Amino acid sequence: MRDRRPRIVCISQARMTSTRLPGKILLEAAGKSLLAHHLERLRRCGTLDAVVLATTVNRTDDPVERAGRALGLPVFRGSEQDVLSRFAGAAAMAGADLVVRVTSDCPLIDPALVDELVGGFVAGPAADYRSIDTSRFPRGLDAEVFTRAALDEAAAQATDPAEREHVTPYIYRRPDRFRIAEPLRPAPAPDGPPQRWCVDEPADFELVRRLLEALVPEKPDFGWQDCCNVLNRHPDWIGINAAVRQKTLHRPGMPMAHKEKNNGS
């Protein structure tokens, strides 16, 4: 891979049957669905060769496929629960060498952060896996990058149901087998308590809706720091979803909590 530029493919997982807020990705804010905001922001990334939407074979996810194709994106459909096999299938379809994993309930995802994550992974020491440190960034900016070889090995070898549902635990739980790069961290870290900019519950949607409606008309290419600026002007907004708790999957030896995707996978 080092002898040529790797083909870098971002795969976003999406489904309609989230447990806490069904159909959340097609809720609308600032004139379009959360899924459209999410995918259109990813298409602004300069490091990506392709963006693929990975949904399930369930008929309930036919609207997800239609939404992706309406944006001109390739769509891969696979298992609902075995998300690892879904990612492996999508990566094979797209001819990926490197895979960027994101989730569709993150409509404020920052293209510049994704580019920084991927650029550092490609230019840095050889590695198999790197993530954004969401213990220091707001949740909702989540992204991981890993090699296609690591993904394929995980898909072939993982037997733990959690490792098949959450895609990357097989990789980052095995630092003796895979080269785990230092996560991307902000410098300096944002002040104040951790914030949630992902959408799992109605309160999350209310906050994200307000941010999108405040930012999109004036600065459609906004970044995560622009969201911070809006919240500095509206500090009461931070409390809107403060009671929502993040589901986590323990990540031994890693500083970031891994977001479970029972809701948005």
Results as ranks from 00 to 15, higher is better:
residue 4 R to N: 04
residue 5 R to I: 04
residue 6 P to W: 04
residue 7 R to M: 10
residue 9 V to I: 12
residue 10 C to F: 09
residue 10 C to S: 14
residue 13 Q to Y: 08
residue 15 R to A: 10
residue 15 R to T: 13
residue 16 M to D: 12
residue 22 P to M: 07
residue 23 G to L: 10
residue 29 A to Q: 04
residue 35 L to N: 07
residue 36 A to L: 00
residue 38 H to P: 07
residue 39 L to V: 03
residue 44 R to M: 09
residue 45 C to V: 05
residue 50 A to C: 10
residue 50 A to G: 11
residue 51 V to R: 06
residue 53 L to K: 01
residue 54 A to G: 12
residue 61 D to K: 03
residue 63 P to Y: 05
residue 63 P to C: 06
residue 66 R to F: 07
residue 66 R to P: 00
residue 67 A to T: 06
residue 69 R to P: 00
residue 69 R to V: 11
residue 70 A to Y: 06
residue 71 L to A: 07
residue 73 L to Y: 09
residue 75 V to C: 14
residue 75 V to H: 05
residue 78 G to D: 04
residue 80 E to P: 00
residue 80 E to R: 14
residue 81 Q to C: 05
residue 82 D to F: 11
residue 86 R to E: 00
residue 89 G to Y: 06
residue 92 A to M: 02
residue 93 M to F: 12
residue 95 G to C: 10
residue 98 L to P: 07
residue 98 L to F: 12
residue 98 L to E: 13
residue 99 V to I: 15
residue 100 V to W: 06
residue 100 V to E: 07
residue 102 V to A: 12
residue 107 P to R: 08
residue 107 P to A: 04
residue 108 L to P: 09
residue 109 I to Q: 06
residue 111 P to S: 03
residue 111 P to V: 06
residue 112 A to K: 13
residue 112 A to S: 13
residue 113 L to I: 13
residue 120 G to A: 09
residue 122 V to I: 15
residue 127 A to R: 04
residue 128 D to C: 11
residue 129 Y to C: 07
residue 130 R to E: 03
residue 133 D to F: 11
residue 133 D to Q: 11
residue 136 R to L: 15
residue 139 R to T: 13
residue 139 R to H: 13
residue 142 D to G: 08
residue 145 V to W: 03
residue 146 F to Y: 15
residue 147 T to F: 02
residue 153 E to G: 00
residue 162 A to K: 02
residue 162 A to F: 04
residue 163 E to F: 00
residue 166 H to F: 15
residue 166 H to L: 14
residue 168 T to C: 11
residue 171 I to G: 00
residue 172 Y to T: 06
residue 176 D to C: 00
residue 177 R to T: 14
residue 178 F to A: 07
residue 179 R to N: 01
residue 182 E to C: 00
residue 182 E to Q: 12
residue 183 P to C: 05
residue 186 P to K: 07
residue 188 P to A: 01
residue 188 P to H: 03
residue 189 A to D: 04
residue 196 R to T: 01
residue 199 V to F: 05
residue 199 V to I: 15
residue 199 V to N: 03
residue 199 V to K: 04
residue 200 D to K: 08
residue 201 E to S: 11
residue 209 R to P: 02
residue 211 L to E: 05
residue 212 L to N: 10
residue 213 E to C: 06
residue 215 L to R: 02
residue 217 P to N: 01
residue 223 G to C: 10
residue 223 G to Y: 05
residue 225 Q to A: 12
residue 226 D to M: 08
residue 227 C to M: 11
residue 228 C to K: 12
residue 229 N to H: 13
residue 231 L to A: 06
residue 235 P to I: 12
residue 237 W to Q: 08
residue 239 G to S: 13
residue 239 G to M: 05
residue 240 I to L: 15
residue 242 A to H: 13
residue 243 A to I: 01
residue 244 V to A: 14
residue 244 V to Q: 14
residue 248 T to G: 12
residue 250 H to L: 13
residue 251 R to A: 15
residue 253 G to V: 11
residue 255 P to N: 09
residue 256 M to V: 01
residue 257 A to R: 14
residue 257 A to S: 15
residue 259 K to N: 11
residue 259 K to H: 15
